[in-house]
Design a protein around this nucleic acid. Structure first.
Length: 301
DNA sequence: ACACAGGGTCAGC
DNA sequence: GCTGACCCTGTG
């Protein structure tokens, strides 16, 4: 793969497995905007960049990161986009397990799991509970505009970073109400306060083992097993975190469970048994596949 | 009009 | 462990 900077953008040529649509529209990230040319403008790591797919051939992608420098690529985006992981091998391994995974991984070719800020993940996924993705995106965007730092103009709009722990912990009643997140409002406020006073140490999660990290996160109000798994998978590099949401339940019940199962714990146990150490990746492929194909609803169309 | 659902969690049994 | 309620709003 070839990397160079030119005209205010970083170009990645011949990258395996890098489909912006599959990366951003799979529910792991809420701060993206689809542009008219089908590129994605995102805000992450206190920066705004635009991600465009220029060419795809034989699972090799040419990508343009507008607004990025080569220095930022090596310091930030390389890790953010999980560039050091071999997704070709990973996808092959999952596909070899059974026909359903073969189909789901083929459908989601080019998907990657982003390494995102853990506090942003915590607040975002507390907001996600029993909510809809467009509404979650709007709330995350609003809290950033209200409380985040201005990071300048990009593509005709003023962009704001995701707010700090301090700013969320001290959010005003009015701003909290403006998020329109209903019963989740006290959850994000109280969780931010706990994190601010060091009651729960988010920065420790990467090095803490999975069980201990889960136990800690669940102490935060609004964080249950599913949200904790999302935080750990998207914000703390825990490959074995397996978020069991409505789509995974539908997919698992349709293909893997002997009898329809509602118990999330049992579904998760079964999932870990089948998918193994990289369960989080399997989850992303089948979440994307199930949601896009409306599994469990009318299978037609 | 009004029930239903959306990347679940929590309180109460 | 299991059930129902839950703030909000677009959809049928």
């Amino acid at each position: 793969m070839n990397i160079y900077e030119k005209n205010g953008a970083v170009f990645l040529e011949g990258v395996p497995e890098f489909n912006p649509k599959h990366i951003f529209e799979n529910g792991q990230c809420f701060r993206w905007e689809l542009e008219e040319d089908n590129s994605y403008t995102i805000v992450a790591k206190n920066r705004a960049i635009n991600v465009a797919l220029l060419k795809e051939e034989n699972n090799l992608y040419d990508i343009r990161l507008e607004g990025a420098t080569l220095e930022d690529y090596h310091n930030i985006w390389q890790d953010y986009f999980d560039m050091d992981r071999d997704y070709v091998t990973l996808r092959k391994e999952l596909a070899s397990l059974d026909d359903h995974l073969e189909e789901a991984t083929a459908y989601g070719q080019g998907l990657r799991i982003l390494n995102q800020d853990i506090f942003e993940m915590t607040i975002s996924f507390i907001i996600s509970a029993n909510n809809q993705i467009p509404r979650i995106k709007k709330a995350v965007d609003t809290i950033s505009t209200l409380l985040g730092e201005e990071i300048g103009e990009f593509k005709g709009k003023t962009r704001y970073s995701f707010p700090s722990v301090y700013d969320v912990a001290n959010i005003s009643e009015e701003n909290l109400a403006a998020l329109k997140i209903g019963f989740r409002a006290p959850y994000i406020l109280e969780s931010a306060k706990m994190i601010l006073r060091g009651d729960v140490e988010l920065s420790d999660m990467v090095t803490t083992d999975y069980d201990q990290a889960t136990k800690e996160l669940i102490r935060l109000p609004g964080v249950g097993p599913k949200v904790a798994d999302c935080i750990l998978l998207f914000g703390a590099k825990k490959d074995n975190a397996l978020p069991v949401d409505t789509w995974v339940i539908k997919f698992m019940n349709q293909y893997y469970m002997d009898t329809p199962e509602k118990n999330m714990k049992k579904i998760k146990t079964k999932g870990l048994e089948i998918f193994g150490e990289k369960a989080g990746f399997a989850q992303q492929y089948l979440f994307y596949y199930a949601r896009e194909n409306k599994i469990g609803k009318s299978r037609k169309e």
